[in-house]
């Protein structure tokens, strides 16, 4: 698939010598949803701020649709929409005017019918004549999305779109993001909510301390880096594990009534068959079996800890 954003060896060191990004290289494919996952201060916002022209890079290059973000800034910026993390809005302005203002900034002729459609899609049409300071936090965030969409961008950056948003609105926002992707928009979102990345992202890029740790399809990442756990429920509690089972690194749970076994599901030999055979030989009676897949959250925590 064609790359729409290409980041090459991007670094950023702020005036206070804090190195926010260290040699990041990343390609973002057209029409995908990619989640930049990382803890606070990982460098996610710095990265998208550089691409959008708000922060000046120290070294490296970025192209959007094959145009350089510095040399061809007019072309690249007109392709990009940005929803910032903070609710950075002029509080005394009216919703419709404020969204139209952003369209003008991007060099587009006024188009009230398009603004009407965007506001209706985001359930803001009833509030078009309201001042921004009269809106709830969730509505303000939707105004930011409406502003970012007002010039019909093909690449949309969402910086922590669900920060401070209730569960219902978060679900609604995910739906909006998916619909945008279906309409041909490439979405890059930063988040530290793992479930958000799991729910809507095609790919995940994990960033920590300015370094890109891993980039992969969300499902492949879970499959390749995640472990599965086999939970074995026993008929009778055991005090210690039989010596024959020591090589499996089992964990005794639930006052000896359960045993857990971690295995790599992508491996040819998971060891399950031999474990069950050995358990039978030691006389342990099985009551029930269950398997659990480790989540993206486990993987993320593990990656960040290792880093």
């Amino acid at each position: 698939m064609q790359n729409v954003v290409s980041i090459k060896k991007l670094s950023k060191t702020y005036d206070n010598d804090f190195q926010a990004l260290k040699n990041i290289t990343l390609d973002i494919k057209k029409n995908e949803i990619i989640a930049l996952l990382g803890p606070n201060g990982a460098g996610k916002t710095t990265m998208i701020s550089i691409i959008c022209g708000i922060v000046i890079p120290t070294s490296g290059s970025v192209t959007v649709d094959n145009f350089d973000i510095i040399k061809d800034y007019r072309r690249t910026r007109s392709l990009i929409g940005l929803v910032p993390q903070e609710l950075s809005l002029e509080q005394f302005e009216y919703v419709f005017n404020n969204v139209s203002y952003t369209r003008g900034l991007y060099g587009k002729a006024p188009n009230p019918s398009l603004i009407e459609k965007i506001l209706k899609d985001l359930s803001l049409w009833d509030k078009r004549h309201s001042r921004i300071n009269e809106l709830s936090g969730g509505m303000k965030r939707r105004v930011l999305i409406a502003k970012a969409l007002s010039h019909e961008p093909s690449v949309l950056f969402l910086d922590e779109p669900s920060a401070g948003v209730d569960v219902e609105l978060r679900q609604e926002m995910w739906q909006v993001i998916k619909e945008l992707r279906n309409s041909g928009v490439t979405i890059i979102l930063t988040t530290h909510y793992i479930e958000e990345a799991e729910a809507i992202a095609d790919r995940v890029a994990v960033i920590n301390k300015g370094e890109l740790l891993v980039v992969d399809n969300t499902s492949d990442l879970v499959k390749s880096m995640g472990q599965k756990t086999l939970l074995i429920e026993l008929h009778e509690a055991i005090r210690t594990l039989p010596s024959k089972l020591e090589r499996y690194n089992l964990t005794v749970l639930n006052n000896g009534l359960s045993i857990s076994y971690n295995y790599d599901s992508s491996s040819k030999q998971t060891g399950i068959t031999s474990l069950l055979q050995d358990m039978k030989e030691t006389g342990l009676k099985l009551k029930d079996l269950n398997t659990e897949q480790s989540s993206l959250e486990n993987i993320f925590v593990e990656l960040v800890r290792e880093n």
Partner: peptide, 18 residues
């Protein structure tokens, strides 16, 4: 200064404006 103070300056900086 006011857009700098509220943070809304981001949209001027991110727009294709010289």
């Amino acid at each position: 200064f006011f857009p700098k103070f509220t943070g809304s300056i981001y949209e001027v900086l991110a727009a294709p404006v010289s």
